[in-house]
């Protein structure tokens, strides 16, 4: 199905594009441990993470969002972020059940941190609302906030601009650039929206039928013949 090699430098903002069914999301699922590769290795920060459970991979510093938003729908916006912060909880089970002062202190810290993340994404006044009641664009932003709260060094965004209007997309572009700089992370981005990819990514891989057909700077990709062929019938930047 899928046969390919690619690498990502520290702090890089890499784009992964390709026509529908090219296997982009599958790549993400392989990296984050949802699927296991038949062959080959995934090396992250010098460690082999091939075949690890998804939660371990996340704890190693890879966080992601989903193409079809997967928030914890029926609970509050704040809780969505607090769940991602669960590793930070400074109390154990006993302290939890006995409600020691240490527990309350820990909860205060978690709440503070969670609200900070919400603030970055301009969601602070929605903290008490049920996640699924947010408008689409805000749900996308909340998903990124939630992923960031796990403190990743690599953030994987699966079509973050899907369903957004041009205005929202532009805002998102700024936000992505800002996050990378401020949090000092690498970002891997799958996107359909060419303007977004061409606008923010430093380097781009083009995937078709599970193979990398081109790699390079946005300008090079724009002029690449094979890419244009693969996209024939679809819009190119």
């Amino acid at each position: 199905m899928l046969d390919f090699n690619f690498h990502l430098e520290d702090g890089e903002l890499l784009g992964l594009i390709g026509p529908n069914g090219a296997g982009k999301t599958t790549v993400f699922n392989l990296i984050t441990g949802v699927y296991k590769p038949d062959e080959g290795n995934i090396i992250f920060s010098g460690r082999d993470i091939t075949g690890l459970a998804p939660y371990t991979i996340c704890q190693q510093g890879i966080a992601r969002t989903f193409q079809n938003i997967r928030l914890f729908k029926d609970i509050s916006v704040l809780d969505n972020v607090r769940i991602a912060l669960h590793k930070d909880a400074p109390y154990g089970l006993l302290k939890t059940l006995l409600r020691t002062p240490g527990f309350f202190q820990g909860e205060i810290e978690i709440n503070k941190k969670a609200r900070e993340y919400l603030q970055i994404f301009n969601l602070e006044d929605k903290a008490g609302e049920i996640a699924s009641s947010l408008p689409y664009g805000e749900q996308r932003r909340l998903e990124i906030a939630r992923a960031l709260a796990t403190k990743p060094t690599l953030l994987i965004l699966d079509e973050p601009a899907a369903g957004m209007n041009p205005n929202e997309t532009r805002e998102l572009m700024d936000l992505i650039r800002w996050i990378r700089k401020d949090f000092g992370l690498s970002i891997l981005l799958i996107e359909h929206d060419m303007s977004l990819v061409m606008g923010v990514c430093e380097r781009i891989y083009v995937l078709d039928y599970g193979q990398v057909i081109a790699e390079g700077l946005p300008e090079e990709i724009r002029r690449n013949k094979r890419v244009i062929e693969a996209y024939l019938g679809e819009e190119v930047g």
């Binding site: 984050t32 949802v34 459970a53 998804p54 939660y55 996340c58 704890q59 966080a63 992601r64 989903f66 997967r70 928030l71 914890f72 729908k73 029926d74 609970i75 809780d79 607090r82 769940i83 991602a84 669960h86 590793k87 939630r146 992923a147 796990t150």
Partner: peptide
């Protein structure tokens, strides 16, 4: 909250680093 996240979406929960 970790327990509730399992109910809400097990896959997403796992990918948020929750065993």
């Amino acid at each position: 909250r970790a327990i509730i996240s399992v109910r809400e979406d097990e896959v997403a929960s796992e990918l948020m680093g929750i065993n």
